[in-house]
Amino acid sequence: MTPDSLPPLPPIALSEGAMQRIRTRTRAEARRVRLAAAEAAVHGAFAIGALAWAAAALFA
């Protein structure tokens, strides 16, 4: 047997409980990141709107 003829190294399965814990925490973190991004977008849009309103009021 040589290193080039080695059998493939199989993944080592995690227990179903461990997989479930990882899925749950990863989904929760993904949701948190998505919400934070959406919130930042809303704040950005609000800031741009406020600036536009202020500029319009200034030059009206």
């Binding site: 190294l9 199989p10 993944p11 080592i12 399965a13 995690l14 997989m19 990882i22 899925r23 990863t26 989904r27 993904a30 990141v33 998505r34």
Partner: peptide
């Protein structure tokens, strides 16, 4: 886009491989 299905698929795809790598 952090699509929930994509996140689940990533975990299913890579978790056992990463686990094997770390265990070894």
């Amino acid at each position: 886009a952090l699509a929930p299905d994509a996140i689940d698929a990533l975990v299913t795809h890579y978790a056992p491989r990463l686990n094997g790598f770390l265990r070894r």
